[in-house]
Structure formats: structure tokens, C-alpha cells
């Protein structure tokens, strides 16, 4: 899933302080699981903002709503009938949701309420770690299903670099060296000989390098 981290309340206050009718819009998907933008976080932020504005002596309406998703038309349509009551939306969805909300309600200011991070697994509650950067050309078959693009600090495709020490990355002893993991895994699969196959130059045009990306599936289009 996508993980997001909380944005400091003071930053959100700074973004919205000129508005008087604000909708805090949560999302029931990834940001709920990572406890950054679900119904509960919407409640906490809204309550804090209401108290803040009251304390400042300002009359500001702060309402709460959480949608099933903010990355699909049908769920975002659910707020069409109420959106006119507001002059700003703070979306606690990932950056995708913030943008899609803004696209749909073109004249409505929409502000991000979280910092969107990356694609993760939940290792334990409160700990999310990166596994995929969506490079668009998956090489996991070659690397024992451990991704050097997302898990090596240098995206080295023929690793490790010289900085791998005791299984850890040179940039931080808390980070596993992806290539140590790959070698361990190839060994466990009895495929260590594959290590010596050179990974060719990668086609990064399917990554960020190729500009904004699209997946088009004519077979499922209507």
C-alpha cells in the first residue's frame, strides 16, 4: 500500500488560516491503515482545528467526512451535494487523492493534510518499510524477489557497492543492504550462480524518467 505521514498541524493551520468553512476529507484506504488520514485522524485534526480557531477568536466551521476512496470518481461524487457549503478542503488522502479531489472540484481550494511517502509493507504497527518504487519494468525475477531499485540507496543493479558492511548499508546501519539480502536469498534458492549474470542497462523510460505515466488496458476499457 501507500504510506503517508502526518503533516504538522501548524503547517496545515498556515495553509488554511484565511478560510472560514473547511471540510476535512479522509480516505478509507491506505491512509487509514497507516493511521495518517482515516476517519479517526480526520476527527483529531478537525477537533484540534476547531479549538485552535475558537482560541483565536475566529468563527470557523470545520466539518469531517471520510470517503471510501479519493482515487475513484464514484466515491468523490458523494461530496458533490455538500461541497458548496465549504470554501476549502483539507484532504488527508495521499497525493493522488488530493489531486483528484482538486480536479473534480475545480474552483475549490484543496490542501494536503499528510505527506505522501512511498509503497510499503507494514512490518509492525507503526513501522512501514519501502518495497517498490513502481519503476514500470519489474526485475524481481532476476534478483530473488528482492528489489534493488527501491531497497538499495544507489539503485545498483549489479551490487553490492563497496559500502556493504555486515549486511548493512553504508548510509545507515539500520538499513539492510539490499544486495546482501539478494545474495542470501539466491543462496537459499540454490541459485547463487545467477549472481554472476550481469544485469543490463535498465530502461528507465518506464520510471519517472519517462515523464507522467499511464497504464492503458484496452481489454478492460468500456
Amino acid at each position: 500500500m501507500i504510506v503517508a505521514d502526518k503533516k504538522p498541524i501548524e503547517e496545515i493551520i498556515d495553509e488554511i488560516k484565511e478560510h472560514e468553512r473547511i471540510l476535512i476529507l479522509g480516505c478509507n484506504e491506505c491512509v487509514t491503515v497507516c493511521e495518517a488520514g482515516g476517519k479517526k485522524e480526520v476527527g483529531v485534526l478537525a477537533s484540534a482545528l476547531r479549538m485552535y480557531f475558537l482560541n483565536e477568536g475566529k468563527e470557523v466551521k470545520v466539518d469531517e467526512k471520510t470517503l471510501e476512496r479519493q482515487c475513484d470518481h464514484e466515491y468523490l461524487e458523494e461530496i458533490r451535494s455538500m461541497i458548496d457549503q465549504y470554501d476549502a478542503v483539507v484532504s488527508l488522502a495521499c497525493g493522488v487523492g488530493v489531486q483528484f479531489t482538486a480536479e473534480k472540484y475545480h474552483s475549490m481550494p484543496v490542501y494536503p493534510g499528510v505527506n505522501t511517502c512511498f509503497m510499503v509493507v507494514t512490518e509492525e504497527r507503526g513501522l512501514w518499510t519501502e518495497r517498490c518504487q513502481g519503476c514500470g519494468e519489474c526485475i524481481l525475477a532476476r534478483t530473488g524477489a528482492i528489489c534493488p531499485v527501491s531497497r538499495c540507496a544507489k539503485r545498483v543493479l549489479n551490487g553490492p557497492c563497496g559500502g556493504s558492511t555486515d549486511g548493512k548499508c553504508e548510509i545507515n546501519k539500520e538499513i539492510d543492504c539490499a544486495w546482501q539480502l539478494i545474495v542470501d536469498r539466491l543462496k537459499a534458492l540454490d541459485r547463487l550462480d545467477d549472481y554472476e549474470k550481469i544485469s543490463p542497462l535498465k530502461d528507465w523510460s518506464t520510471d519517472r524518467a519517462g515523464g507522467p505515466r499511464k497504464v492503458i488496458r484496452e481489454d478492460v476499457q468500456q
Binding site: 498541524i9 483529531v44 482545528l49 479549538m51 485552535y52 482560541n55
Partner: peptide, 8 residues
């Protein structure tokens, strides 16, 4: 932390 931030 929240209450400190919002001045309460």
C-alpha cells in the same frame, strides 16, 4: 503536543 501546538 497537539494542545501545545494550538495554544490551549
Amino acid at each position: 503536543k497537539i494542545l501545545d501546538t494550538i495554544g490551549i
